[in-house]
Design a protein around this nucleic acid. Sequence first.
RNA 1: GCCUGGAUGGCGAAAUUGGCAGACGCAGCGGACUUAAAAUCCGCAGGCCUUAACCGGCCGUGGGGGUUCAAGUCCCCCUCCGGGCACCA
Length: 856
Amino acid sequence: MAEEKDQRYDPAVIEQKWQERWAANPRLYAAEPPTSSKPKYYVLEMLPYPSGQLHMGHVRNYAIGDALARQMWMRGYNVLHPMGWDAFGLPAENAALKNNTPPRQWTLGNIAAMKRQMQRIGYSYDWATEITTCLPDYYRWNQWFFLRMYEKGLVYRKKSKVNWCPECATVLANEQVVDGCCWRHEETKVEQRDVEQWFLRTTAYAQELLDGLDKLEGWPEKVRTMQRNWIGRSEGTEVDFFLATDDIVAGSTDAPAVFSPKPDTVRIRVFTTRIDTIFGATSVQLAPEHPLVTFFASADAALKAQVDMLLAEQKKAREAGDVGAIEKHGVPTGKFAVNPYNGERVPIWVANYVLMEYGTGAIMSVPAHDERDFEFARKYGIEIREVIQPAEDSVQNENGAKLLPFLSEEGILVNSGQYNGLPCAEAQKRLQEVAARSAFGEGKIIFRLKDWGVSRQRYWGTPIPMIHCERDGVVPVPYDKLPVILPEKIEITQQGGSPLARVPEFVNVTCPKCGGPARRETDTMDTFVDSSWYFYRYTDAHNDKAPFDPAKVQYWFPIDQYIGGVEHAILHLIYSRFWTKVMRDLGMVKNDEPATRLFTQGMVIKDGAKMSKSKGNVVSPDDMVARYGADATRMYALFAAPPDRDLDWQEDGVAGVSRFLGRVWRIVTRHAPIARGAGSAQPSSKTQEGGAPLRRKLHQTIAKITLDFEGRWHFNTCVAAIMELVNELQDADARLSAGEIPAPVVRELLTTLVLLLAPFAPFLAAELWEELGGEGAILNAPWPKSDPGLAREDEIEIPVQINGKLVSVVRVAAGADSKTTEAAALADGKVKARTAGKAVVKVIVVPGRAVNLVVK
RNA sequence: GCCUGGAUGGCGAAAUUGGCAGACGCAGCGGACUUAAAAUCCGCAGGCCUUAACCGGCCGUGGGGGUUCAAGUCCCCCUCCGGGCACCA
């Protein structure tokens, strides 16, 4: 009975043994210093939020990175493979409310638990470089960066409309609003409030962030496209309409080339990408929040009432999240604007679809050549005037009438005075020049990207190192007073505003400038600040003089491979790129971008839906590990689907992988004595050995897996290839036992199998490596090399088709030429039977691939 | 609306350059071992038709067209599903 049990693969025993051994050797996964003679390789997985337990998405993400890191070690690289904790954030405060546990205690407890899980799963992290963003030795550098950026003019304060989540009782970044609701409370509608906020000037780098995307060839095109759209560059013209006063005469038929207003005329600046259509502008539309609207309304109670309604509508729509869906509404102001190019008077409207925060908050409305303007003009009976003659007739319907609006820029100008006949592109250039020369406009590039609001009215975050003095205004905390420590004795309540404001010892300070009484800033930083530069800190995690040593960063950066979820494609990855560029301009780093290659893995789903508590389809990694072992769990995560696709979790599949690992264990342990007996003898030339087909399969497998690690990363097929190899070994089991395969070949087969398995199932690989008498840690054993001579097939099968349909398969020598292949195909019995009495019109031979006979 | 990714057996998937569709695994079925079960090992396995069986035939990668000796793969049109952005002037 006991003997039988010994015959069984027992991951619990093996994994515990190796976990203990690895824990006893903390330098195992440590990177060598920059003086290393090995080439460097920095592989990084996105650091988790310490929620308390790993989920399957983490397990998968880290299994991918771990396989890569281990393989790179075996290939002789100096690997940096760190891990840390994105430890600030709201859940800690929520937990404090719920369980009456201090946020720090809750967070650190979670970190300890998750670290245990990671170690149990056997990820190859160098824990000596671990970082925890909620500890002062980390967040002090957030404050340091904030001050440096403040000096550089990249930090400013402004009152602005912000997204307010009533649930969190705090401000959210634009990026944290999802469909009008809070990203953490999907059911809670976000309100708009005016709050004084700290901003980072991300827009200063808008163009560079955009241009940089073209060079990031190692990033998924999807992510680059998403970022391009997010940055949203628009090239166009800003142009001033003039507020018409009584002494301005309506445009006459022979309008002046350029209208000259009186010097004190009020200007209404609009932004357009289609200045070439300006002669078709039949109204000017203002955003309801536009200052001029406020001015008009102040003298017109009826207008004010209508504008207030528009505002209320907009607010409601914004809170509902379907801003685009509300019906286009407008109110005429009764005022007129004058087109600067021809002096034409057009009515000024207030429209609910014009956004104050984009462009100038005012537009010229050209119904004939813009979808929204068209819809609006139709609704209110505003004139629709065509000013572009399309190049083709494609915009006509069957009756020959033009389909409006006509948006294409393929055409020439009409009804546009002296500009008639110009192609659109040419007209844009000319009209822009005229505007600039006459000082009523200019070419302009605008971005949708906004500055990054980093203030949070929350406790559990990095304190913003600023002081408010009645006399001196805003005064930065001096560098030598950093860090501003987040107080720990604090009462977390559900009341709005910052909890820090209720801690007098924290708030009341003396002004660094005048020494008078002052108040400390009580807002904390967005947690995205923490994650914008954490990967630099890993290179020098214990530096207490600076965020990092630039020399170390220069050695390790850019990150060679960054791996994480696609949900961070925009926020985290744009902020990180911004931060890198700022640090470069501060002279701290030399690289322009944080990471050369980015890999976004797919989601882990179950029963067709993303795992979530509410759906009740969450699979706990702990359960899986307890039942099938860490090796089986992580290997299944790599086997069930290619890493970039969604993975459907099927527990039976984990059991299958576990069975497979058991088979490996049995085969290797059964024949290990033969392998060990071979000593260091090398297999002799293949012609003398019975093991040639097995060696062929082995070397084909090495080649396949090695190639996949080069970038395709279809680890599912890597695992499948190992399974095929094991199946062949299994088939040869009797011959192995009978000693029909030379011992050196057995040794080669088994040790190589174990080496190939090492990135995917590190515990079992380590165990079997030891069993086979392998020297040192398998992590430092060289990755096997495929011998093409041994991998080559002697004979290959060639499908033979007749008129494209498979008829037979013939065997020919590998490398056979067209003639030989054709002869073999024509000599085949089935082929002969099919072609008897018919004319073979044509024979297509693709050597090594296929033969196709065209037969009549 | 715009930008993306995807659709292949009962299920997860494979086919990297157009060349035997379904590797590998799960579930299933049959057998060996066992008093029995578990575990393990061996085998079968896309669908339909035909046959006692072997053999054989036809169909088949979301739908429709096309290019090609040859299409899961390339081109055009369409449907459905996922992700991102969205009154952006």
